[in-house]
Each structure stands twice: as C-alpha cells, then as structure tokens.
C-alpha cells in the first residue's frame, strides 16, 4: 500500500483551503508522506497576505458564522500544523512567473518547482487528489 498522498490545490477560496488542509493534516496524522502542489489560484492558500483573507464563494458568506460556531481552526493555523507534521508544500514556478510572484511572497518552508517535481512525488502516491 502506498504511504504517499499527493494533493493538487488549484483554487483559492476558503472552502478550497479547508478541503486541502484538512485532508493534508489528517493524512499526515496517519503518518502518510504528504505533498501539496499549489498552482494557479491555489497559490493564494500559502500567500503570506492572501491566506489570511481567503474569500467565501459568492452568496455563501453567511457560512462565516458557522465556521466560528463550530470552532474550526483558521487556515493559517492549519497551515502551521501541516508544516509541523512534515507536509511538503510545492509552489508552481510557472504560475508564480505568470502572476509576477516570488518565493518571498509565500510562507517560509515551501519548495518551488515545476510539474515534474510534483509528478515525481505523485508517481507512486495513492490517492492523488485535486481541489
């Protein structure tokens, strides 16, 4: 059985962030080797400023109350936990170039790489998930 979980994060909303980081931290807590490839809007999830104010989908803003009531950890908290547990973050170089972003715009501890970097990790991962 594979001990790797590979995740592609390609969307930048708050819901997307929870899907990505909940699965990633749960997998890491089960001693899986986890890597997340952040591409296109997914880069927001690890952008130093953007990660603190990820948008809710239009018309779903009222969920904010539910998040607070359910005592859901914040995205920066989940990111920190994920890193603590050894989840590997890979930023997509090509998208960063397109968006005019540098490694310094993102949280510490990320790797920057291309599609092959991710594919190399994901080749023997099960499952591979896309959000």
């Amino acid at each position: 059985m594979s001990n790797k979980v590979a995740i592609i994060a390609s969307n930048g909303g708050l819901f997307d962030a929870y899907k990505v980081f909940n699965i990633a931290t749960a997998a890491a807590a089960t001693e899986k080797e986890v890597a997340i490839f952040f591409t296109f809007e997914g880069l927001n999830l690890i952008h130093k400023q953007a990660m603190h104010q990820l948008p809710m989908p239009a018309g779903r803003e009222h969920f904010a109350e539910g998040f607070a009531k359910a005592n859901v950890p914040s995205i920066p908290q989940l990111v920190e936990m994920a890193q603590e547990m050894g989840v590997k973050f890979i930023g997509c170089q090509m998208t960063m170039d397109v968006m005019g972003l540098a490694k310094e715009d993102f949280i510490d501890g990320i790797e920057v790489g291309g599609a092959v970097t991710f594919l190399e990790f994901a080749k023997d991962a099960a499952p591979t998930l896309t959000f």
Binding site: N22, T25, A26, A29, T30, E31, N71, V72, M81, M85
Partner: peptide, 14 residues
Amino acid sequence: KGLVCPMPIIKTKK
C-alpha cells in the same frame, strides 16, 4: 472536547 475534524485526530496523533 470542542474541537472539530481534523483536530481530534491531530491531537490524538501527538
């Protein structure tokens, strides 16, 4: 207590 997924698992692991 009071924690939601995935926190109970993460805390348990630790």
